[in-house]
Amino acid sequence: MSISLDEVRHVANLARLQLSETELLSFQGQLNSLLGHFEDIQNLDVSGVAPKPHAVAMQNVFARDIAHQPLPREEALRNSADTKAGLFIVPTIIEE
């Protein structure tokens, strides 16, 4: 299976990565090389094997619902590039 430049562009958009044409070409090559190596598991018989999403499986982990002092607002905002009136400023999503 090989991945086209348009597919690379599509994946970059899904991943929210703006890439230059040079980067797109470079990633196309690297992705195709990796996907080539990934072929090895395509022929492996895994029928009936349950997928293992966790290293050590746990079930029903609950946290006690206790109110606690949250992070002070100014500390939560401290690392943001743009804040106003105690809020994060996000890029405009809905036009007026």
Binding site: V11, I41, V49, P51
Partner: peptide, 29 residues
């Protein structure tokens, strides 16, 4: 960026079963 691209591809519609799901099965094996 490369790893984000690989991961996004492996999780994307149409490829999830062939890559991510299958890799988790191999992890189980």
């Amino acid at each position: 960026k490369l790893r984000i691209m690989v991961g996004t591809y492996a999780l994307s519609s149409g490829y999830y079963d062939a890559y991510y799901h299958r890799a988790q099965q191999v992890r189980g094996l």
